[in-house]
């Protein structure tokens, strides 16, 4: 029984330390990853281009939907640069 308790206490210590270590590493490396992505691969500011071109002519929510739809359908290969209303 006492051997079982010893192993259980050891597992308590090792288990909790391991879980904390792994999640701590995920937090640390996650933050490094955020810094890296922010610095080297920030998202292209498409919205700004579109808003300038179509300022005042389209609802911002509709604009966001169109930009996202084009992004998904073309797998990120195409960007919306201007929107003109068909007569």
């Amino acid at each position: 029984m006492s051997e079982g308790f010893n192993t259980a206490f050891m597992l308590l210590a090792v288990g909790m330390i391991t879980v904390f270590t792994i999640l701590a590493l995920i937090v640390i490396f996650g933050n490094i990853l955020i810094l890296f992505v922010n610095k080297f691969i920030p998202e292209a500011k498409v919205k700004a281009v579109v808003s300038r071109a179509t300022q005042g002519s389209i609802d911002p929510q509709k604009l966001a939907v169109i930009v996202s739809a084009v992004d998904v359908v073309t797998e990120g290969r195409a960007k919306v640069t201007s929107i003109t209303k068909a007569e």
């Binding site: 079982g4 259980a8 206490f9 308590l12 288990g15 904390f20 995920i26 937090v27 996650g30 933050n31």
Partner: peptide, 22 residues
């Protein structure tokens, strides 16, 4: 990301009940 630490703390139930079960 910082809140991930609480996901670690909540695993204490696993190891404490292991002791009780022994």
């Amino acid at each position: 990301l910082k809140l991930a630490f609480f996901g670690a703390a909540a695993q204490i139930g696993i190891f404490s009940v292991l002791l009780g079960a022994i």
